[in-house]
Amino acid sequence: MSERPFWNPYVAGVVLGLVLLGSFLVMGFGLGSSGGVTRFAVAGAHLFAPKAVETNAYFSQYFGPGKHVLEDWLVFEVLGVFLGGVLGAYSAGRLKLGIEKGPRVTTARRLALAVVGGIFMGFAARLARGCTSGQALTGGAALSLGSWVFMMAVFTGGYLVAPLVRREWR
């Protein structure tokens, strides 16, 4: 069974926009993902160092009587993103183990760079109070000034660094 093609980007964008609009119309807020990923990380760290996490000035907001760090809308939404991604990839014949990289980079280097880039993103998403989903997409549609500033900065940062990691992709 061969792979099904990706959707046309404009069509995919419109459907994505309808999902975002649906979230606004039902819940009153938009999409997100780094928040959910952060909560998973905090829950993991909590297993090893509960005191350090609970008393942390930033993470303490996730804890308290009657609160569970994973009992959050974004956590369930990220779980859904995973399941939706699985359904999408499998039904299109694209669900198989692999590593995405350019032809001129070793697997080890690519994975190391993915971790390093991830660390930057995780830090940046907390600093900016959201990532491409929670700020750029959601805040952009809600016309938040800070989200538009964030979005332009993301593209700027990407274009500035892209020439330095050209070997990873091209």
């Binding site: 993902s33 990923v37 880039g117 940046a124 109070r129 990532c131 491409t132 900065a153 940062g157």
Partner: peptide, 25 residues
């Protein structure tokens, strides 16, 4: 913070190849 966070996230995006949401996918 949103300006600086955006720049850092953009840099992380091209280095890692994903943003947090697309990474999950």
């Amino acid at each position: 913070p949103q300006l600086v966070g955006g720049l850092l996230l953009g840099a992380g995006f091209i280095v890692s190849g994903y943003c947090p949401g697309t990474g999950v996918v």
